[in-house]
Design a binder for these strands. Structure first.
Lengths: 195, 195, 195, 195
DNA sequence: CATGAATGAGAGTTCATTCAT
DNA sequence: GATGAATGAACTCTCATTCAT
């Protein structure tokens, strides 16, 4: 059973997540968070003593429940194509909801100090995609490709869209292009009907 | 002939460019700019009355001298491959100097209001790459590709790298991957020796 | 037999004595005392509802166990010289441990309100020294002196040293000077070997 | 001609002197000083960025115009007795106006950090009185005394009175006692009519 | 035009104090 | 009684912005 303190803490994290996602890191003040969490100054401060600390707690939390990491599925022997399609679907979904993404906040946060956590996220992304592509190639499902190159395209095209889509309206077609392109690079079949 | 006022204005723009590139938009204060431009408060205010106004002037300026817009070169009948290689070289160079990029500042700026200018940049990018690819296909230099898809990959992979490279150390290989990948999509030849 | 409440109360007084002695009155917060007494906010408040109240309780306590008041000894007919020497030894000891003294805290406390207790301390000091000197003169042990004047010197030179020694390092010689001087004023003999 | 900034600075010093003298160091906030100096927050902060810094400036200023340092007068060959009487008169005056004294503030200030300035004040006091007494003894005006001892008595009895008189009402007699006592220690003549 | 002292709003932070458990 | 989470007032400090010189 989590204590009251624990619950308030979680509540603050959730409430401030929305703020950071919407407005980035630098614009958010402790006061904003007080209001969002319906808490007094002192109350908030007894849990987190700066936006930086709070934001780190959020990243920590995200880090723990990291959604898709392929490894389990690969161990279960699920087909690479299936894993890929699921991953691409998730990516599309995330690109479609960039307003819920911490990307901008992360950039601002990292820009003014610690980057360790960011590098960690980056490494994890690289590793899991590299593993998947190799898995697919070994199983003969994926074409032989320059793995590092494809991973780079996957990661950064995705990031690029996530960032821009906060700012310029992005069509479904554009978002689907990314997934479509990635799939074509890897899968031999003639068509990907996602587009 | 530019007046003294004009010169001071330009000087302020240059000085603050560096600040915005390094620290993004939100962190920069009028005070920082006074110091960077070696100007008194009043002096600065007689030219620009907010960081927003100043930043818009910078964007305006960038917009005007937009470096590569292909059109001239296409009109001159230069080969699509040549134009492409030049553009990719420029992109690589820019990715290698992300610390000089306003990307982060633009995102923050846009995040808190006007996005018109950002959309304009975006449109311009799309348009010129679309034009180039079609030009290349018409001349038989480029493969038949899904133009919109390739343009999407080009623009956003590039943006993604530009953002991340501020934060995580990025290898030459990673950066070259982007250019290499794009070229492979478009050019029939077996090899691209940029990598 | 003292109740648990009584014991906690005493414990708080002792713990906070150290704080007041070291840092004076104004700097000490209820929070500091909570920590020093290892007590929760609510716990502390159920005993004392302000630093002022707490400090007054400390003064009260000191007042009760007032260490040297001569009177008993004078009644027992002990020689004035002996009483004096003992008192001077105690004074020296106290001057040597000014960090344990509440002087600074008392000044600050008094400076912001009630001075009754302070006046009381002062009166007591004057009275007991006056009594001792008269006792010594009557017994022919002490020289005929201007009693009020000597008492003034005794009390304030002592206080002066106690205050300054918190701040500037004070030599043994300096401290002994005070006792030596007082003794010379009162005792006929040529030499005082305390120095 | 002193600049406007310089004038404001001096004005702040004067205004805050009164506050520190009356209430000590710790109780005074920047806000109090704003009000006393009739200045806005920002205005005050552009001159001094903490009460500590401000207080140090006050001490600095006092240090420079140090009122009585005997040396000039000794060089002019003025009689030791005259110098002494003038000094004692000044001391009496200061003891009578303890509410204008920074003593308490100095103790509090020193108690929470730097003591260098305090030691300096102390050293200066010792040095000048030592010089005067030796001067007087050389001229045959003063009795042969233990110089260090008398200096100790002078300095600390004076300090003691200055502190206590903020808190307990002090009679003229008490204050004069100090001067009277010092004079008797030094001067051979039978009578000092200050009392 | 430029200067820089000054204003004042507002963010960050700390605590005395209360109160449900 | 004790606990400690929460409140809210007050303080420190920073800047955008103004304005007399």
């Amino acid at each position: 059973m989590s204590s009251k303190k624990e619950k308030t803490r979680e509540f603050i994290l959730d409430a401030s997540y929305a703020l950071f996602a919407k407005q980035g890191f630098n614009r958010i003040t402790m006061k904003d968070i007080c209001e969002a969490a319906n808490l007094s100054r002192g109350g908030l401060y007894s849990h987190f003593s700066s936006t930086r600390e709070l934001f780190e707690a959020i990243l920590e939390k995200i880090n723990q429940k990291e959604e898709m990491n392929f490894y389990e599925e690969m161990e279960q022997g699920i087909s690479a194509t299936q894993i890929l399609d699921k991953a691409l679907a998730l990516m599309e979904d995330e690109m479609n909801h960039a307003e819920d993404s911490l990307s901008l906040a992360m950039y601002e946060y990292a820009g003014s100090g610690e980057t360790v956590l960011m590098e960690h996220f980056n490494k994890m992304g690289e590793a899991k995609w590299t593993a998947l592509i190799q898995y697919g190639m070994e199983r003969g499902e994926f074409q032989r490709v320059n793995v590092a190159e494809i991973v780079t395209i996957i990661l950064y095209a995705y990031q690029g869209v996530r960032m821009w889509s906060r700012i310029v309206p992005m069509t479904q077609e554009t978002i689907q292009s990314i997934a479509s392109h990635i799939r074509k690079q890897l899968i031999k079949e003639k068509k990907y009907n996602g587009i």
